[in-house]
Every structure is written in C-alpha cells, then in structure tokens.
C-alpha cells in the first residue's frame, strides 16, 4: 500500500520556477567567473596609473 503521487499543475509551476531560478544562479556564477578572468588577464583589476607616474626621468 502506498500513496499515489499526483502531479498537479501547481507542482509543475513550482518546479519550473525552481529550475529557472537555478539556471539564473548558475548563469550568474558563470558571468562573475568570466568577468574575473577577463579583468585579471587584461589588467582591469590593477591599480590605475597616477598622474605622477611616467613623469619621472
């Protein structure tokens, strides 16, 4: 004897929402990772040159 699991439309909506949110979070992690890689490799995270730099003899 066991309970029969009935898939209701409400469960489908909730499941779709969870999957959607999960994909958004994965995409966000991928974007932050990608941005970090680009910034590090292109020197975008380094200190900005000051006005005095390069003016020395």
């Amino acid at each position: 004897m066991g309970f029969e699991h009935v898939e209701h439309e409400l469960h489908k909506r909730r499941s779709g929402r969870n999957i959607g949110l999960g994909l958004v979070l994965v995409a966000f992690v991928a974007i932050v990772f990608g941005m970090t890689v680009v910034k590090v490799t292109t020197g975008g995270l380094g200190p900005k040159p000051t006005a005095t730099q390069g003016a020395s003899k």
Binding site: H8, E9, L10, K12, R13, R14, G16, R17, I19, G20
Partner: peptide, 15 residues
C-alpha cells in the same frame, strides 16, 4: 488550496 495564488507563479510569470 489548488487555486492560483501569489507566490506560486511560474518562472515565465516573473520573466
């Protein structure tokens, strides 16, 4: 309650 309620919207509704 099987009625459509706030908080049980699908992903498309939020989009």
């Amino acid at each position: 309650n099987t009625q459509t309620q706030g908080g049980e919207a699908g992903f498309r509704d939020y989009f």
